[in-house]
């Protein structure tokens, strides 16, 4: 008997980039995730995902409402995008009840309170991200803030990244299926799984030796550490430098571009191509003898 894990994926103020990134999962493939037993004996039953599902219109919205009712306490709720709140909640709407549009704020509250667990997929859902960037025209807020305001006490895991690496999403789900929900010590203060977000980009960067030697690139295409071009590697927790992207093809710094810091709560409010100021640089390398001020 195969165990069916119902999953509902809700798109709030998002760009769908998180879903496209998940589509790029290499092993398991997206087909393995949707159709096969992703872990022997367990099948992810993706009931609602607006970009993937066959149904349209009211029939599609019905699935959302039926799952909340029939699978109370059993379904995993995944959310991408941040959520416009208060007076501007109407800036993000999905479906109607009677003739009244239903805001994402209301949908999320309804679905969150009966979920087994909630995955905030991407930096928008985790920390507010792009819609919440200054001056936050839609008063967009992360999932965590909404749950706190509404007094919903459900397990929440943040999987930030703009977008997150598919392995981070799949790995987090697989971990739940194999080992149950993460314990407090498995997550950092920002509710990110330490398995993927436990180290700074800077710690394992292949250009780290240049940093330690004080050799810095002055423009794209130069050899050297990208710190002076604005690299956020020294303050960004993620394993991109080891994991690389698109099935190991490349990664941001591999393409000669500074890390944008997209897994951090500060994203995107720090200017991307300006050198970090007033940052505590982690001095790990044995050969680093310079002073912070020298950089």
């Amino acid at each position: 008997m195969v165990q069916e894990i119902p999953v509902v994926w809700l798109a709030a103020s998002s760009c769908t980039g998180c879903s496209i990134s998940l589509l790029n999962s290499a092993s398991p493939s997206i087909k393995n995730l949707l159709v096969d037993e992703v872990i022997p004996g367990v099948h992810i039953n993706l009931r609602f995902h607006q970009t993937v599902m066959a149904g349209s219109g009211e029939a599609a919205i019905q699935v959302l409402e039926d799952t909340a009712r029939e699978k109370k306490g059993e379904y995993v709720l995944a959310v991408d995008g941040s959520i416009p709140r208060g007076d501007t909640a109407g800036y993000c709407v999905m479906g109607e009840r009677g003739d009244k549009p239903v805001t994402l704020e209301d949908r999320l509250e309804e679905l969150a309170k009966d979920a087994l667990a909630i995955l905030a997929v991407g930096t928008c859902a985790s920390f507010g991200g792009i819609p919440a960037a200054e001056p936050n025209p839609s008063n967009a807020q992360p999932v965590r803030k909404l749950l706190e305001d509404k007094g919903i006490d459900k397990p929440l895991i943040n999987i930030p990244g703009c977008p997150p690496h598919p392995d981070w999403i799949v790995g987090t789900i697989a971990s739940i299926l194999l080992n149950g929900l993460p314990k407090a010590e498995d997550l950092d203060d920002n509710l990110r799984p330490l398995a993927f977000y436990g180290k700074l980009i800077h710690e394992n960067c292949p250009r780290r030796a240049y940093f330690d030697e004080g050799k810095f690139a002055k423009k794209p295409g130069d050899e050297g550490c990208l710190y002076e071009l604005g690299c956020k590697g020294p303050i960004t927790y993620a394993d991109c430098s080891l994991r690389r992207w698109n099935d190991g093809t490349n990664w941001v710094i591999g393409a000669g571009s500074p890390c944008l810091g997209c897994t951090q709560p500060e994203f995107p409010n720090l200017p991307f191509y300006q050198k970090l100021v007033d940052v505590e640089l982690p001095v790990i390398g044995a050969y680093w003898t310079g002073e912070k001020e020298d950089l």
């Binding site: 990134s21 790029n24 977008p163 992207w245 093809t249 941001v252 393409a255 571009s257």
Partner: peptide
């Protein structure tokens, strides 16, 4: 990704 680091939201084109 080969030429622009990653996708979605790549970094190569400036």
């Amino acid at each position: 990704s080969i030429f622009s680091g990653k996708i979605p939201h790549s970094v190569g084109i400036v």
